[in-house]
Design a protein around this nucleic acid. Structure first.
Lengths: 316, 316
DNA sequence: TCAACGCGTGGGCATATGCTCAAGAGCGCG
DNA sequence: CGCGCTCTTGAGCATATGCCCACGCGTTGA
């Protein structure tokens, strides 16, 4: 009898689910049709869901992205994750993720209460800043996580922090230091001087960190952009470097290396594990190991990437 | 640009739909996530539905039944239709539909305000009456649409009206006439006499008519039960009879025949087209043409059948 | 056989949802 | 370049939904 009742109950649940989701009736109507109280109709609909009698299928490319984002969030315990559809025309395009990053920045900066946004390196981050909707927020603060003086002493060719400050009227804190110092001692000396300490202090209170993720291979962006030499790059790769965030190289487990350029790097070190909302933005097959390592090492707790990259990360 | 916006809007709709149906968030949460007002989030979810970006799949045998019922309702403009799952163990079993008919009767009789229920012939109807939940409704009325005196003068072996009256305390109006009279004249005379006219008057005000549907072939129930002779049956078949409701034979278009036993029949004639809620109850491959004809001729405006039969009717 | 337990039920309330209305922004036509 | 038009937005309200509680029926175990 129990089995019989059970079956009949599931039948009714299925009926209720059908009437609710497919026929589009209200639970009141369903209650009348099935001759039960509205409360029971509601229970039947829930039961239908709980027993997975009904499934939803979203016929749209976005569905896969949402699914991937949910999986990444789950697997790496992320507080934020977005996966944008891969653009078949330009598989490596950062446009999509830049758009989402800009959106994230917009949302953060829209706040009336003062917020502190810290920016790292990366093409996506730079492109995102360009797309931020101008808004007047003089009480916000924008802080750089990396030195904006390149090797030759000029200001970095692209002043991300300054640009974002322009668009918001926020106070900004560029980091008036070269990317690398000549020695560990000198680095340690420099980061203690007043202006730098101030930047560091502001960065420490950041509400959002948005950082790019670079792979450590022959085409590493930090090398291409001239921040590290070929020899320095290779040395780090020998030490096991697989990726970098704001210049900080880490290995395949996401552990920051205590060697090579990391010793002379002026960038503000990542929190490990990330507590502040720290969003990594990166796409491309070449970056997959670097992104995966950063996720595994909890160097970031948020990710914005594209469908192809997301899938590759999950398939590792 | 319009296309671009359109696409982006659908993307958002898909995202919203995913978050709502699959991730189970509220529209408020979705609004925050997508950086729009709650109203817009609601619009996106509706849009997702309207554009059929999302589809529901009910993984349960009931789903097919609901679908078939909806199709029958649509096709034949029915006010009520139920399709029960076919029982693989007993394809012709009336148990399922009897259950549903009983349910329908329960629902109707539960009403506090007086209702009139008219009953026709059929195994399903008889079985349904047996399953009706006893309930005290002395102000209801139960009326028979068919004569309950069989050829030999005894009361019909199964007094459906009486049984239902027993279970409800309702007044009941059996029809104290033989199924067939010996001639058209005699029939016309009899239906005018007081007790019969009274039954007819009550039946005319019925709130619900529940009738069986019989096929007109060698195994026709009215013949098997001895109400019509083999010759009478064959004569009606020659006249094009394909089915009968309360003994009234009709052709494949659902038109009542004006010949043969129909002229001597004491049963209360069906309304054509049915205005009163008139539910036909029948299952079985043999009855498919009869049911389909009754539907086409609007002899009934409601149907209770099983999955196999429903499918066969729709496939004609 | 009786009492205790559990499950389903129905009423009622806080919340979520759907929809309407007035207003604003973007767009096209003149 | 301006006007009007349409499309979309956001607030607010009526309704639907989800959930909690107390109750009643059926079942189980002593």
């Amino acid at each position: 009898m129990a089995a019989e009742n059970e079956k009949s109950r599931l039948d009714d649940a299925a009926r209720a689910g059908w009437l609710y989701f497919i026929a589009g009736h209200t639970q009141d109507e369903i209650a009348k049709m099935l001759q039960v109280s509205r409360a029971s109709a509601q229970r039947l609909v829930s039961l239908c869901l709980a027993e997975r009698l009904i499934t939803f299928r979203l016929e749209h490319p976005i569905a896969a992205c949402m699914e991937l984002a949910a999986q990444l969030k789950e697997r790496f315990d992320l507080s934020h994750c977005e996966v944008v559809p891969a653009d078949p025309a330009a598989p490596q395009a950062t446009a999509g993720i830049a758009e989402r990053c800009a959106n994230l920045l917009d949302a953060t900066l829209r706040s009336e209460t003062p917020v502190i946004v810290a920016l790292g390196t990366g093409r996506a981050v730079r492109a995102a800043v360009e797309r931020v909707t101008p808004i007047d927020r003089p009480n916000h603060q924008i802080v750089s996580l990396v030195g904006n003086i390149s090797a030759d002493g000029s200001a970095s060719f692209y002043d991300t922090v300054g640009r974002l400050a322009d668009r918001t009227g926020a106070r900004h804190y560029p980091m008036p230091l070269p990317f690398l110092m000549s020695s560990e001692d000198e680095r340690n000396k420099m980061v203690r001087i007043e202006p730098i300490a101030k930047v560091k202090a502001v960065a420490a209170k950041a509400d959002l960190r948005l950082v790019g993720i670079g792979q450590m291979d022959q085409k590493a962006q930090i090398h291409v952009d001239g921040f590290v030499t070929r020899d320095e790059l290779f040395e780090m790769m020998r030490q096991g470097a697989i990726g970098e965030i704001t210049g900080w190289a880490y290995d395949s487990k996401g552990r920051l290396l205590k060697a090579g350029t990391n010793k002379r790097l002026t960038s503000i070190p990542p929190e490990v594990p990330a507590r502040t909302t720290t969003i990594g933005a990166a796409v491309g097959a070449a970056k997959v190991p670097a992104i995966a390592a950063a996720l595994n090492g909890a160097l970031i707790n948020g990710l914005i990437t594209d469908e192809t990259t997301a899938r590759a990360i999950l398939e590792r």
